[in-house]
Design a protein around this nucleic acid. Structure first.
Ligand SMILES: NC(=O)c1ccc[n+]([C@@H]2O[C@H](COP(=O)([O-])OP(=O)(O)OC[C@H]3O[C@@H](n4cnc5c(N)ncnc54)[C@H](O)[C@@H]3O)[C@@H](O)[C@H]2O)c1
Ligand SMILES: NC(=O)c1ccc[n+]([C@@H]2O[C@H](COP(=O)([O-])OP(=O)(O)OC[C@H]3O[C@@H](n4cnc5c(N)ncnc54)[C@H](O)[C@@H]3O)[C@@H](O)[C@H]2O)c1
Lengths: 277, 277
DNA sequence: ATGTCTTTGTGAACGCGTGCACAAAGATTG
DNA sequence: CAATCTTTGTGCACGCGTTCACAAAGACAT
């Protein structure tokens, strides 16, 4: 998932809902696959299944684009591929720069699916002088000093940041100052950008943490259902104990901070242990 | 945006809203930074700014966890770090396997932030016999044949898929059959999984396409603004080629886009064309 | 033509998420 | 102890997104 433009001022948003926009690429992918198999038409039901969404949702999504279907038949695959591509702006060429050619940046540069849909890696940029000129994915890495020049000369409006978190904000500022108005950020930092600039983030760590949350919940329910007693849980040390703030154990379960939670919410789910930084 | 679990049966409504869960890692990151700077407390306003969200939203999010703040003062940093970590399940160790050690998989394996928060790469798995035994990130790559054994022996419940799209579904099935119940999928495919299994996807291509959509819209508005004075807010002008620093355009039918969208069926310039897949 | 059958397009209801605005809680000062 | 100041916690309203359900549109058969 990616966030970014949280701010939608509804500026004459006579447009396609954001949620719909986010699904269009999904539909496009499914349609492209059908197209390659020379399937002429698809029903909303079939396509929805392929894209993993509800068919009513899909129909409503398409309704924002116009009435491209034929009742009793379905949608013309080729036609829809074209319409969605056009709506997403994929009928034009989008030069992209990748900044930060480390493990991830190099992988991205080597990624084939990149150029498959109108996106073209225009340049690879890194701050490490030792990398300058070194070829990655058949393209010489360029030094950050030339960032502005590269952006302007290639008319780049989309930038990908794959630098360490500490450098991300500064890199984004340089990119924006040079003309970039859309950023895909892989660094685990919140980028602060001016209005008019779109930022989407890809954060592995966040995704894993969300999965962990659900995983823990699943384990908890399972345990509760099984009525089994998991091994000793030994309450570990509580960081920053003192501070006087927050009422400590008042009633309820085992002492410690866990009680605070139980106070408001349900009892179960107390699994204190070591805590990483 | 998990593909599988779209359905939320609200099983036992004792739950934190999904949107809140997705923000907790963000708060945690900001709090960890504060903690490292030995800041004792933060106000919702400060923390919200650091996390890039609305302060009211942050307070409401925290209210789902319980009442951990002190009015007139703010939140105790250390205490909150602990509570959020516990809620997210980061107080326990999560062994993770990465399947598909190619460009991306190797980058992920080398990623430090991985193990920083309770996640531990338990194994690297690849189908290529030539890779078996080869060390990546100081860990020998193991063959897919041993996938089930690895999962079971290490008690892995979270799997990361970084194989080509064509292999993703099959890999997910093997992972699930072996006991994995959470999957982070980097392959551009919709995974079909049974109930109870969570899937989250990271899709570079989709993110770029969403950015392209907004980028195109920005270019269009810009062009419209520069043209004749827009009297009515009704229909947007057609973003003609040229104008602005827009990238080189590819092929595109002449007829108005807005017209086709607004109208039921635009017979005019809507000639199906072959699009770059 | 007429009737039947399939599938779209969408009105309407509903639930979730967001953000405002403010009372209450507690710190702090006199 | 009372007054004042700060900041939380949340009631409430609003808008977006999702889903159901169905009339209407068109294909197709008779
Ligand atoms: N590797 C992964 O799988 C992964 C996963 C999720 C997130 N991330 C994030 O992506 C970013 C990159 O990760 P990585 O593993 O490739 O790190 P890395 O250290 O391998 O690469 C970082 C690169 O950025 C360059 N760099 C540093 N400062 C720069 C600057 N100011 N301008 C331009 N280039 C600069 C460095 O020279 C280096 O080549 C990090 O923020 C990391 O947290 C990585
Ligand atoms: N590289 C990127 O930056 C990037 C970005 C976005 C998405 N992706 C996606 O991530 C996936 C991996 O990308 P990549 O660039 O690393 O590809 P890659 O070809 O470099 O690596 C794929 C690896 O998967 C292994 N593999 C193939 N089938 C397997 C199977 N059945 N079981 C286990 N391993 C198997 C291959 O041996 C290979 O090592 C692809 O689906 C790609 O579309 C990659």
């Amino acid at each position: 998932m990616a966030t970014g433009r949280t701010h939608r001022p509804a500026t004459r948003s006579r447009g396609i809902p954001e949620a719909t926009v986010a699904r269009l690429p999904l539909y496009l992918r499914a349609l492209t696959a059908l197209s390659e198999r020379s399937v002429p038409t698809v029903s909303s039901e079939e396509l929805a299944a392929a894209a993993g969404v509800n068919s009513a949702k899909l129909r409503k999504d398409f309704s924002y684009l116009g009435s491209y279907g034929t009742r009793g038949v379905g949608y013309d695959v080729e036609y829809l591929v074209y319409q969605i591509s056009r709506e997403l702006g994929l009928t034009q060429d989008w030069p992209v720069v990748i900044v930060g050619i480390g493990n991830l940046g190099a992988a991205l540069a080597n990624y084939g699916g990149f150029s498959a849909r109108g996106f073209r890696v225009a340049a690879l940029i890194d701050a490490d002088p030792a990398m300058a000129g070194k070829p990655v994915a058949g393209m010489p890495v360029q030094h950050t000093d030339d960032l502005e020049k590269i952006i302007e000369e290639n008319g780049v409006s989309i930038g990908v940041i794959a630098t360490p978190a500490g450098a991300a904000q500064q890199v984004s500022e340089r990119l924006i100052a040079a003309g970039v108005t859309s950023i895909l950020n892989f660094a685990p930092t919140v980028l602060s950008v001016p209005d008019g600039v779109d930022v989407r983030k890809v954060d592995l760590s966040i995704e894993l943490q969300i999965l962990a949350f659900h995983e823990q919940r699943k384990a908890g329910e399972e345990a509760a259902a099984g009525a089994s007693v998991p091994g000793g849980e030994g309450v570990a040390e509580v960081p920053g104990a003192g501070s006087g703030a927050a009422p400590a154990a008042a009633v309820e379960p085992p002492a410690g901070r866990a009680a605070a939670v139980a106070r408001k919410n349900g009892p179960e789910g107390d699994v204190p242990a070591v805590m990483p930084a």
